[in-house]
Write a protein that binds this DNA or RNA. Structure first.
Lengths: 211, 211
DNA sequence: CACTCAACTTACGCGGGAGTAAGATGAGCG
DNA sequence: CGCTCATCTTACTCCCGCGTAAGTTGAGTG
């Protein structure tokens, strides 16, 4: 079942940088599949077709290995988000692009999103801060857009952004877990529509009517 | 700092049911503060002013102790949610009540919500299923309401519900972490407004306009 | 007042996994 | 062709924390 994606010819020597990349890749598979705690350094080494001390020649410890991956993928998410928002000046399309970015992130790169969104190490301050900071940066990018077009206060704009990011993250994760029930495009569009209806023309009607 | 909330007179004997409740309470404090993995059975026993074997006379193991708490608080959340949606027939108020329920849940009972929303044991199938099932039940409650008033398909209604629940959970957690920046009422209202604008009159305008 | 049984204690076994010491191997260079 | 040094291996040590064996205490009952 688990194809040894990189454990080619157990016994091949590799130059340092190549080996490092491969170790990161093996570690990602294990951490994603098992979480931090259930992941064993032995298993990561095995997966890379190498013995444990090799791992320790590249990373000082399990935690640092994990943090390296977390850092990398957090950056990817924020970058995707930035690109999405810069891809157009039409706010309606920005919303769509932003959700697409979230869905893409969740759909991509061996489920690495689980490190960022579902870490079982969030009780460690270093990890909690990294995750939350990533989240905040995404929200901040969206917040800027909102502020540009509404007379809303900074704090309220930020809270709205948080809510939207939460919506994106949650629905993207749900969509992935239930692959097949709804096609990606449709899911993105649906949730984007919900968000757009929610924020567009915010200033206009301060009175809330029922249906 | 950490008041020994229940560790009265180390050396007091307690009848079985009373002791059990107290152990659950001590366990909750520790699990919430440290997460499952970093929580030590010794510390839980200490916190309860009791030695470790007592713990094992009430619960077969660490996992079962944890699951008991998870189960309990999951039920509380779903129940709060059900009450909120049954508290009125006006959908606009339903939305507000629903978000209030989430904020209340997060604000209440010694931050027990962290067990449900931030468990570091989600890689264990039993826990993952429990958390996800709780989430789904909340979404389903909301989904029923949505379906009653729209011509939307079941699957789409469900995805919308998921998105809304994610919004509620995320914003409630954020609000709690940044207590003081926004008062509870204001946060609830703001996010409820966002959600209501998003879903109300969904069927009417199938065309999306920009601002 | 002795007897019983639930409630509690101290002190330990033991497994699992992170990290390491010491040695083997082999690719490339002089 | 043999030297060197980076790469890699085997085979440990050690700690931490769950779970338990065996024994103690004391409240209530006949």
């Amino acid at each position: 079942m688990t194809a040894p994606s990189d454990a080619r010819a157990r016994g091949t020597r590799l130059p340092r940088v190549r080996r490092r990349r491969q170790l990161l890749s093996a570690a990602q598979e294990i951490f994603v599949a098992r979480g931090y705690h259930a992941a064993a350094m032995d298993e990561i080494a095995d997966r890379a077709g190498v013995s444990k001390p090799v791992l320790y020649q590249h990373f000082p410890g399990k935690l640092e290995l994990y943090l390296a991956l977390l850092e990398e993928h957090s950056e990817v998410l924020v970058e995707k988000q930035r690109e999405a928002l810069e891809s157009t000046h039409d706010n309606r399309q920005r919303v769509t692009a932003s959700f697409q970015a979230y869905f893409d992130f969740v759909a991509g790169d061996g489920e690495a999103f689980r490190l960022v969104f579902e870490s079982d190490l969030r009780n460690l301050p270093a990890v909690r801060e990294k995750s939350e900071h990533t989240f905040q940066r995404c929200a901040e990018l969206i917040g800027e857009v909102i502020r540009q077009d509404t007379s809303i206060s900074d704090e309220e704009a930020h809270l709205l952004s948080i809510a939207l990011v939460g919506m994106a993250e949650t629905s993207a994760r749900y969509w992935l877990n239930n692959h097949g029930s709804v096609p990606k495009d449709a899911a993105e569009q649906l949730v984007a529509r919900l968000a757009w209806r929610g924020i567009s023309g915010w200033d206009l009607n301060r009175s809330d009517e029922d249906d």
